[in-house]
Nucleic acid binder design. Structure first.
Length: 416
RNA sequence: GCCGGGAUGGGGUAGCUUGGUUAUCCUAGGGGACUGUGGAUCCCUUGACUCGUGUUCAAAUCUCGGUCCCGGCCCCA
């Protein structure tokens, strides 16, 4: 027996119905805020991802050579492809450009709860505007998505990568050492960050004040303790968020995000019910276009981990509307089968979803089947009614049934 | 890459410690009791030991290895 590959899943009809339902909420939310959908290839030149994240990510990519000896990789995320597409196709479009995307991504990692090798991301980017309004718009869109999905318990944190960078630089951390120090600070591993800083000649006092800075967490008021333009910038973002009624994320200056290209505001949303893999959304402002051969353009974006959000919703017991067939058409006797198909076709053309027995089953079995698929009505096509151009319409929830003229059938069913 | 727990019909499970008849039960699927009426009941039926290897007269059960799943670590763009 062949299993689906490690870290991948089959989505069965019930799964897909649920996934499409939530997907459409995300799309609608993005569209309501003026974002328009794009779709990029599932594989790209491997170089694209190396440029974005460094050569080490090759270890976690599904990378391969094609028959033309090109180095390709399945996309591990969609920001880089989106920005590549911007550079290739949209660089002369009126700014700001607001785009969103949804699709699967691939990472060669050890699967665990909420982590798969094939997973789905929903993301949005605003390209070409470097203002606090832009950042606020992006955060508001992300928060609105979580709200619209119906997730009850989540935590949004927003920080500014410039604050920590500036302080570290001021005490003598050079650009090449910055990433590893930031990585430790992001996780609040101060004992591990200290030796790195000490080696760079940082005093214990300076290090302590930086550690304290990463622990700056709370409401907008904590920003008063950290003077500077970045702090003011965050305050502006918060005021725009508040004006839009988007809620008030926590300030957490310890939110760092690993990579170099983030330039300012960074934010994360997490769902505590998820345990170890609880981050469901991450984003910030960055510049990438110049890495891909375009002009340097400021962008802000985020990505939602679709699978994790669904997992969180499931744990919260969220329900979604299950779609049912309107009608199941049954031929009462074998000689009315052709007529039954004629009626099924007519119903479908008139916008009524209709299924029909294909297995030449006896009526009782067909009725049972109709019940098991949750059909709202059963249409019984039998000779007695046909003599009067009618069929019997049975309401499966009440069990009531009555003769209905065939010409009235679609309207009669739709009226329920 | 590391640590730990798992895998028995389509779904959920018993059996495994202590190897031994036809692998348990629930559910589901197909057919029938019921020639034009579902959800109930009864009968018949379909269908499984993750894969390979070793030990043994005998392996679902014990050994080793592979695969996959679950929880956690590392990583997380």
């Amino acid at each position: 027996m062949i299993q689906s590959p490690r870290g991948t899943r089959d989505f069965l009809p019930n799964d897909m119905e649920r996934r499409r339902f939530y997907e459409s909420i995300l799309r609608q939310t993005a569209q309501r805020s003026g974002f328009r959908e794009i779709q990029t290839p599932i594989f790209e030149e491997a170089e694209l991802f190396i440029l974005r994240s460094g050569p080490n990510i090759l270890n976690e990519l599904y990378a391969f050579k094609d028959k033309g000896d090109r180095d390709l990789a399945l996309r591990p995320e969609m920001t880089a492809p989106a920005i590549r597409s911007f550079v290739n196709n949209m660089s002369n479009d009126p700014k700001p450009i607001k785009i969103f995307y949804f699709g699967q991504c691939f990472r060669y990692e050890r699967p665990q709860s909420g982590r798969y090798r094939e997973f789905f991301q929903f993301g949005a980017e605003i390209i070409g505007a470097a203002t606090p309004q832009t950042d606020a718009e992006v955060i508001a869109t992300a928060l609105e998505m979580i709200r619209a999905l119906g997730l009850k318990e989540y935590r949004a944190r927003i920080g500014h990568i410039g604050i920590l960078r500036k302080e570290l630089s001021a005490v003598g951390i050079t650009a090449d050492r910055m990433p590893e120090v930031l990585q430790k600070l992001d996780k609040k591993l101060y004992e591990e960050a200290w030796p790195l800083m000490e080696a760079a000649g940082v005093s214990r006092d300076d290090a302590d004040s930086i550690f304290e800075l990463t622990g700056t967490v709370g409401g907008a008021d904590v920003l008063d303790r950290v003077p500077g333009e970045e702090s003011e910038y965050l305050k502006q973002i918060l005021s725009y968020l508040s004006a839009m009624g988007a809620g008030t994320p926590e300030i957490d200056l310890g939110v760092v995000r690993g990579l170099d290209y983030y330039t300012g505001m960074v934010f994360e949303i997490e769902a505590p019910v998820l345990g170890a893999e609880k981050q469901i959304c991450g984003g910030g402002s960055y510049t990438l276009s110049e890495l891909f051969g375009g002009e340097k353009v400021f962008s802000t974006g985020f990505a939602v981990g679709f699978d994790r959000v669904l997992l969180a919703l499931e744990k919260e017991g969220a329900t979604y509307p299950v779609s049912k067939m309107d009608a199941y058409v049954i031929a009462a006797t074998g000689d009315t089968t052709l007529k039954a198909f004629e009626i099924a076709g007519m119903l479908r053309r008139n916008g009524v979803s209709a299924d029909i027995d294909l297995a030449e089953r006896k009526m009782a079995k067909a009725m049972k089947y109709a019940s098991s698929i949750g059909s709202k009505f059963v249409v019984i096509v039998g000779n007695e009614d046909l003599a009067k151009d009618s069929v019997t319409l049975r309401d499966m929830s009440s069990g009531e049934q009555k003769p209905v003229k065939i010409t009235d059938l679609p309207a009669e069913i739709r009226s329920h």
